[in-house]
Design a protein around this nucleic acid. Structure first.
Lengths: 418, 418
DNA sequence: AGACTTATTTCATACCATAAACTCGAAGTG
DNA sequence: CACTTCGAGTTTATGGTATGAAATAAGTCT
């Protein structure tokens, strides 16, 4: 319904993209298997693979013995075809990490940040320094870097400036992409941290093999990455999936967003601590960070009735929140993550499932698995690094142009040589 | 990422679909305008339009005077190219309606139904009788009917049998499509009634011109039709958009679905009446249907503090429910409908907007319009009738084969003649 | 009547996926 | 060891496709 017009070149790019994605995500595969998986003819697979080999993006990876026929030659995306960088702009640090095409981490740089001094300029400097540092550290020519993916904890407009709106950082409309472009000509991709983590789980973690999933993240904040039909669901302005501020208890606890009764006010770390404080006559472990405090409450669940009660309630609220996702998005799988989500989930997953089942409609609930994230919170940078890879795959393996803005629209200018 | 392989024929079909959809949805348009709107070259537009004219699916519709050049010839989809039938299987009646391609209603048949006797067989008989009746009534050759769209109030599996699961009808896995196919060879399309109503609003009502929208329906039940990127969002098993049973008040009122605190238990017609009963010491108008009862409460809002209080609360809950849609789906527009939704909305839309604003995140809320449905509840059959039209458009104007199952997969068999 | 303007069509061209025929590399077979 | 069989991959001829450039159509304006 929204399909764009297609030219004969689009067809080529599209088929290259299909083929390359299969090789990357499900490889190593033989040409023969590829014909079956992509529905392309053997002739086309042969031609396209020959192009890929020629360009160096795909390489042979051994072969499979046959029982009486020519052996199959396996193909994979060449890990050394290029490198990508993933950046995680967190609230306490900027992490920059360099990967090869197989997403093996080759170098890492960390820039701790003074709370409340996360000026955009400082962040940009850290990112640019980090790019230089990890490139040097791994001995990679910057010209060999396909792209940089940046994950921020806020909403990222899809426009050209890469406008970032991040309440927790105090950013409102920071043109992060433009700012970075002034310091490097490597293509920049920016996205929300929850979405990049979701992307990482989809490719390499608990989301593998599924087309519709919601990665539900519970930490200090509460958010979700929605994947529909294999692609990130962004809504009209890329802010879809703001799960934490759905109303779960009308007229209930005050949330930091200003509203009352948000899910985050109940199952976010602060919400849990607040409720524990309320239930425990104001007494709560002081002087330690949120993560340790939550850990302490969880540890106390065996012995303390108060802790147990608060966490049981938390499980209930979380289940109801998950039920909302099930009812509205009808995913095949819900992947629970975030540090608090994992802490709760690794101990009470069956109870969370049961609570979700009580609040969700039977049919969609029975069609939804609920599992835990597999990659841990460091995967934000990994997920960010998948952004340039995803771009490369969807472009059919054609490197993005350097320095420039997005590719020229309209007819391509043809150079006339002699 | 999920793109299928493409052949040159796919390209043709895709471009035909793009062009035909534009002509249908935004026509009449000239060839020249079409080249700009579709990004196709003038040459291609010319060729494809010539094909359409030849096939009779598109016709000329006058021309536009020029100020000094050749006048543009306007094109539109020929209203008489074919006919479509829309069926609304409601809880009290089966409505069958016949339209031409311009969605002008040409004939209608109604089959009232005894409550609680909605056996699938009876329904099928009503539908088949209705098809015959409206065809005869309008003097349309059944062979000239492109397809029948059927709207049911339940979940419809996307599989080949058209399995319908409708709790309110007591249907669990009724193979409606297979059953209908035994009685007619006209292609059958089945979908959920909320989704067909949403489709009607998107094409002809309050959803025009928007790519991301949620049509929020409040009646006896509460549901939503989600449109993302111009297409219906279905989730993995077509049950996405079950808005009515999202938890809005944890631990709150008992809902007929079995859970507690569902939105439907507060803003659904029954929920409103129950809450009014509770607030009014058990007194409520008896012996009249739900719709009149709600109307009576709304009428009493001016004079009765109880009615006013209940409805103000309703507006609050509804706003919170809408906020959940805004936060999770980030649509451009929310269209409020359903008989109760319209009754509330036509009187308290500003208050509903305000309540939604209190519960939604500022940014996505500011990017979302909230409006009312324009078509009324009869549009369910109209929306159902758009299903075969949508199929025709996405196939680029190639009629679906009669009688058979879905088109053969794999290589087409070629007949060898002489 | 001629100049000009804008819409549409025609035609030569480049590009594409594909079927069918063919080659390649191994295991079996007498 | 020749020869067959089998399955994987490649080459080639072909028909289908959109497109740019040039031509044509159909008006207005002076």
């Amino acid at each position: 319904m929204v399909a764009r017009r297609a030219t004969v070149r689009d067809m080529r790019r599209s088929n290259r993209a299909v083929l390359l994605s299969k090789i990357y995500l499900d490889g190593p595969l033989s040409r023969h298997e590829l014909t079956q998986l992509t529905a392309l003819s053997p002739a086309s697979v042969s031609t396209l693979v020959a192009e890929f080999l020629d360009e160096g993006i795909v390489e042979e990876a051994g072969s499979v013995e046959s029982d009486g026929g020519r052996p199959r030659v396996l193909l994979q995306v060449a890990p050394t075809f290029g490198h990508v960088i993933g950046v995680d702009v967190g609230e306490t640090r900027v992490t920059v990490e360099l990967f090869d095409m197989s997403m093996a981490a080759l170098a890492k740089a960390d820039y701790p940040i003074e709370r409340a001094s996360l000026a955009p300029q400082t962040t940009v400097k850290h990112i640019l320094d980090g790019i230089a540092a990890v490139s040097a550290q791994a001995g990679v020519d910057p010209g060999d870097i396909l792209g940089v993916g940046v994950a921020v904890s806020g909403v990222v407009d899809s426009g050209d400036d890469g406008l970032v709106h991040a309440q927790t950082l105090g950013w409102d409309g920071v043109p992060l992409r433009s700012m970075l472009r002034a310091g490097t000509d490597i293509p920049i991709h920016i996205d929300n941290g929850a979405k990049t983590l979701g992307q990482a789980e989809m490719w390499f973690g608990a989301g593998r093999g599924v087309q519709h999933a919601v990665i539900a993240l519970v930490g200090s904040g509460v958010g979700a990455a929605v994947v529909a039909g294999g692609a990130s669901y962004r809504g009209s302005r890329s802010s879809a999936g703001e799960w934490g501020h759905t109303t779960i208890a009308y007229g209930g606890r005050q949330c930091r967003c200003g509203a009352k009764g948000c899910l985050e006010a109940y199952v976010g770390a602060e919400g849990i601590l607040d409720r524990f404080r309320d239930a425990n006559s104001g007494r709560v472990a002081e002087g330690i960070d949120e993560e340790s405090a939550i850990g302490a409450i969880i540890a106390a669940a065996e012995s303390s009735r108060t802790a147990e009660k608060v966490l049981t309630e938390t499980v209930g609220y979380l289940g109801a929140g998950i039920a909302t996702l099930v009812n509205l998005f009808n995913p095949e799988r819900i992947v629970l993550g975030g540090w608090a989500g994992l802490a709760l989930g690794s101990r009470w997953l069956p109870e969370i499932r049961a609570a979700a089942g009580e609040h969700a409609l039977r049919r969609p609930f029975s069609q939804t698995e609920i599992t835990l994230c597999q990659l841990g919170p460091d995967a934000v940078a990994l997920g960010a690094a998948t952004l340039p890879v995803a771009k490369l795959l969807s472009d059919g393996g054609v490197r993005a142009a350097r320095g420039d803005l997005d590719p020229v629209r309209g007819p391509r200018v043809r150079l006339i040589t002699a």
